[in-house]
Design a protein around this nucleic acid. Structure first.
Length: 699
RNA sequence: GGCGGGAUAGCUCAGCUGGUUAGAGCGAAGGCUUCAUAAGCCUUAGGUCGCCGGUUCAAGUCCGGCUCCCGCUACCA
């Protein structure tokens, strides 16, 4: 019986490009799943769009000198284009959360807020919060430092004391300073609304999760069970100029927290979709029907949110919204063993792919590398192997040899299936078995397994062909030869159908080889009558060694800190990176130039590391004795990830010599070293040229 | 340091609730074949299942300890 299924992919944050890591985590599996479900006859509604609120976007937009809407419009377009063109993702509804793009979003998010409020799951609390007069913003606790009122540690952060490990009340810190500009903040009252997650957990979330999660992926369950332990109340509003206004009187300047409104985007985008189609009633009918299966495809970092908080919100409205049936989250995806990083160039630029490889080749390779149960990564060698050996040699070649043979030797005419021989029946049954196995794999979100099964079946087809030896039959038993090729046509058709969710374009092409034409992609077999076939242009081409070499060379250059071609794109916010809370730090940073005096105030000097040791109480820190000619400074530097103490002996460095001393994890640092991050995000020290004596001023 | 995840054939990985000779694909080697995109098919490859100990008639598969790797996070900006 057909099911109603709503499939969502995590809403990409509209402040940067998306890369293969995102694609393989949330978009490709969703798209494959959707296509598979459709072929099965289910009614699928595939929803996505851009997440367009939050502090990070306001900051980026300000830096770019654009207004917020223009900024998110740009990325909205860009992201959609990438997903659709590069990897062939076909959403039903793709919109966004900004009011201009989606007029339904604001109202629906506000309705959620009010429902939760009326049902007692949101409560307001007015608290004094640190406010920076110089920045004109409220400061999140973690951006305030002061003396711990519990242990006296003088560098306690507002949220937690690093020395005694206790959670702190920022307002009780002695001598608070803003860590952004070093100015003392003032306390100012502000009112916010908190989601009562402990209450929701006790009342419903825990029971729901524990009872219903039997068939969820193991990696997801482990993650959620852990997070369930520490569900706390969360403020769901912010003081910001960009977002969904809090729908209550006297709340000017307050908006809903981006994490609150973003997932509601799934609903509002769907609502917009149906409204624009002139069927507005279908929206609630679908989202409130208990038999609808809601499935969220997300990355590992979104698990807690989609498995606990958002379901809690849906439940808490008591409005009858369905809650997710499954959240088949993927783990992280890396590139040749390292994290994708758009700002350092450690990613795959579109030029490396566009026009070079088909979307199907990319889809297939990504699918076989999908981080379903553990972190995985993109490897160019692996990509080449998958495309060449699987798609080209195995699947593509079976299709080609079958169709070409029919054309060359059988005038493209094939008889009705008639009475298949035992071996024919066997291989035709194998197609059914493959279909069943692949369906089971898809339904369990085992996409890699589905790929493997597809190729296994393709191998079976090749084996059948070799056993039958049509090139021999052609001369000895022409009738049997035609029959065998008729079976092969059947197999080619089966391959196309089976591959369709993963390789939609290829499937389409292959189906075009059969006459009379039939476009029912879900059809399990060809019409039984006589058949005309026509050969196809080459389905796949091999990935040359040269291409792999080029790409690897490019990455090697990036790794060395070279200036390999990398579009100057702002880094995408990682999905788990919480949009900074009200009044984010970088807000202060003016976008433009500084006066020369500002630079001149910094005293930079050449120096040499005389001694180095590990910081006793921090993993990333080294404690250095740096000679500056006339004096030796103790400098604590966060470079342990890149350098061992031994390697630093005698290393030349550039030191900020007039930086106010500061205690770092208990040791006073009398200066700072200059360094630049490499492709892995690890710091690399700057070195003065030869002949510059210690103490020489850098200008 | 805290939290989480890994460690199985050269490579990428499967191995659920413990049970005959530990599997697949790729790569490699040898052979067969010529319809096909120098594609296909067959055979082979003998890996202390990270290390140590324990539970058990029986352990990659459960328990404890250890080592290494990865991600998030803290100290670093």
């Amino acid at each position: 019986m057909p099911e109603n299924v709503i499939v969502t992919s995590a809403l990409p944050y509209a402040n940067g490009p998306i890369h293969f890591g995102h694609v393989v985590g949330a978009y490709l599996p969703a798209d494959i799943y959707v296509r598979f479900r459709r072929m099965r006859g289910d009614h699928v509604h595939f929803v996505c769009g851009t997440d367009e609120h939050g502090v990070a976007i306001t900051l980026k937009a300000e830096q770019a000198g654009k207004d917020y809407q223009a900024y998110v419009d740009h990325w909205h377009k860009e992201i959609r284009r990438t997903l659709e063109e590069l990897v062939g993702i076909r959403f039903d509804a793709f919109s966004g959360t900004s009011h201009a793009r989606n007029p339904h979003h604001r109202e629906l998010a506000q309705r959620f807020f009010l429902d939760l409020l009326h049902n007692g799951y949101l409560f307001e609390k007015t608290e004094e919060q640190f406010f920076s007069p110089s920045l004109g913003r409220f400061l999140p606790d973690r951006y305030v430092e002061g003396t711990c009122y519990l242990c006296g540690f003088d560098e306690a952060r507002g949220d937690e004391c690093p020395r005694c490990g206790k959670y702190l009340d920022a307002r009780r810190l002695a001598n608070p300073l803003c860590t952004i500009d070093g100015q003392p903040p003032v306390l100012k009252a502000t009112k916010h609304w908190y989601l009562d997650l402990p209450k929701l957990k006790q009342e419903w979330v825990q029971g729901w999760f524990e009872g219903k999660a039997a068939d969820w992926k193991a990696n997801v369950k482990a993650f959620v069970a852990n997070d369930l332990e520490e569900l706390r109340e969360r403020p769901e509003t912010r003081d910001l100029p960009w977002g969904v206004p809090v729908p209550l009187p006297g709340t000017d300047g307050k908006v809903l927290y981006v994490w609150f409104d973003a997932p509601i985007g799934y609903l509002s985008i769907s609502k917009q979709y149906f409204a624009e189609r002139g069927e507005p009633e279908r929206f609630e009918r679908l989202w409130k029907d208990p038999s609808t299966r809601l499935i969220h495809f997300v990355g590992k970092d979104n698990i807690t949110f989609h498995c606990l908080i958002f379901p809690a919100m849906l439940y808490g409205t008591k409005a009858g919204w369905i809650v997710p049936a499954n959240v088949p989250a993927n783990e992280f995806f890396q590139l040749e063993g390292r994290k994708f990083n758009t700002s350092t160039g450690w990613f795959i630029p579109e030029e490396s792919v566009r026009g070079r490889f088909s979307t199907d080749a990319l889809r297939y390779a990504l699918c076989t590398m999908m981080p379903e149960t553990a972190d995985a990564d993109w490897s160019w060698k692996e990509f080449q192997a998958r495309v060449n050996a699987d798609l080209n040699d195995n699947l593509g070649n079976f299709v080609a040899r079958s169709l070409r043979f029919a054309e060359r030797f059988l005038e493209s005419e094939l008889p009705p299936l008639g009475q298949p021989a035992p071996r024919d029946r066997e291989i035709l049954a194998a197609a059914g078995a493959a279909a069943a196995d692949m369906a089971a794999a898809f339904l369990r979100f085992e996409f890699r397994r589905a790929c493997q099964r597809l190729m296994a079946f393709s191998s079976e087809c090749n084996r059948y062909y070799d056993e039958m030896q049509p090139w021999v039959l052609r001369k000895q038993d022409p009738a049997r030869c035609r029959q065998v090729l008729r079976v092969c046509a059947e197999l080619v058709h089966s391959l196309a159908i089976l591959a369709a969710p993963i390789l939609p374009d290829t499937a389409q092409k292959v189906l075009g080889a059969f006459l009379p034409a039939h476009d029912d992609a879900g059809r399990p077999s060809l019409p039984p009558g006589p058949l005309r076939v026509q050969p196809l242009p080459t389905l796949f081409t091999k990935v040359e060694d040269k291409v792999v070499e080029e790409e690897l060379a490019r990455l090697r250059a990036v790794a060395k800190g070279g200036t390999a071609a990398a579009p100057a794109a702002p880094p995408a916010r990682k999905p788990d990176e919480k949009p900074a809370t009200a009044g984010a730090p970088q807000a202060a940073a003016p976008a433009g130039a500084i006066a020369y005096e500002s630079f001149a105030a910094v005293e930079l000097r050449a120096g040499t590391v005389r001694a180095a040791r590990r910081h006793p109480d921090a993993d990333k820190l080294l404690v250095l004795e740096v000679g500056l000619g006339s004096e030796t400074r103790t400098i604590v530097a966060g470079i342990a990830a890149s350098y061992t103490p031994e390697a630093l002996q005698g290393h030349r460095v550039v030191v900020v010599a007039n930086l106010a001393p500061r205690k770092l994890r208990g040791i006073e640092s009398q200066g700072m070293l200059l360094a630049a991050d490499d492709a892995e995000g690890k710091p690399r020290l700057l070195t003065p040229g030869p002949g510059t004596p210690d103490g020489a001023k850098v200008k």
